[in-house]
Amino acid sequence: MIEFVDVHKSFGPKRVLGGFNLKIEKGETFVIIGQSGIGKTVALRHVAGLLCPDSGNVLVEGVRVNGASAATMRKLRGRMGVLFQSGALINWMTVAENVALPLSEHRRFPKKEIDRLVDEKLDLLELGDAKTKTPSEISGGMKKRVALARVLMSNPAIILYDEPTTGLDPVMSMVISDLIRQMQRDFNVTSLVVTHDMKSAFHVGDRIGMLYGGELVQVGTPDEIMNTENPVVRQFINGDLEGPIRAQ
């Protein structure tokens, strides 16, 4: 479904991905964990075609994303949703207009239908009160939920979540984690989640992979990761000061 084949990516002299391999099955939720600045967002952006690998290939549903034509890209992106780390809401539009954006710009749906879907998504994420506010008037956690509502508008078959629970309180964090599970259960959505919230990672992940030094140093089920022998992974999930990982 989503496949990285020996992906290398550097920015100038800085090597971020070096021989990154991963295969995510249809309907699976895969979680990438790793330190801040290690390249999780970079990996995720490759799937969306927002970054192009220096070498190697990225495949989505068997179609190569890197170097895809504009038409292929449009088709792929139509089946894909990205929850950006910053939310990426348009700040001069209201919450409702933001959520409606994926449908309202393409004029394929009648306005009544769009309004109904917007209300449905806002209710799902407990955002009914914020409908007419602008992004600058709502909290960081609400922005994240609005962004998620916008992603859900287009019923994507693949969802890429960049830090979906960062900045949320523990309860709301659990609500979002549950929602990710629910999307998988009810709509068989394939998901790639990038996070350093370990609680959420263990909750939503079918498999978890730890990104370190440009590649996944270990991939396994939550149980396997929890009981890992790998010193890097163990240090990371326990938050130990001693170990191979140095604070940067």
Binding site: A48, V82, A88, L101, H106
Partner: peptide, 21 residues
């Protein structure tokens, strides 16, 4: 600012052309 906060990329992902928008 929109570019830096990924809003331009978000538009691309929704197949909304930033040039048109």
């Amino acid at each position: 600012t929109m570019k830096v906060y990924d809003e331009i990329d978000a538009l691309e992902m929704m197949s909304i052309s930033p040039v048109k928008f």
